[in-house]
Amino acid sequence: MPNAVLAGIEVEVNDEGFFEDPTQWTEEMATELADIYGVPTPLTDQHWTVLHFMRQEFFEKGTGPTVRKLGKTSGVTVKELYQLFPKGPAKLAARVAGIPKPRGCI
């Protein structure tokens, strides 16, 4: 299992770079991850809304939300999601939010 050092702390990630243990994540790490994945920083309030919503959904349901779910319930529209995370919101936001890769076709 490769380890990454984010915000000075060693974290475990899987082969695709997703967190093995989402509880290791901190907001400082999110900023670093955003830089790594080319999401413009500083992150905006809307970015944070999405990231916290994703983590909340993950801890409640065991899996990150789909883009549709995000668009319907996070308070950020689908259009905005694609502006915030242009390289594909669900997966990219999951990476930055420190949760496992969401699996779903829609």
Binding site: P2, A4, V5, V13, D15, E16, G17, I36, G38, R95
Partner: peptide, 11 residues
């Protein structure tokens, strides 16, 4: 500095 090699999708 973070070693980005563990984040393969950056390439």
């Amino acid at each position: 500095m973070t070693d980005t090699a563990v984040f393969p999708e950056t390439k």
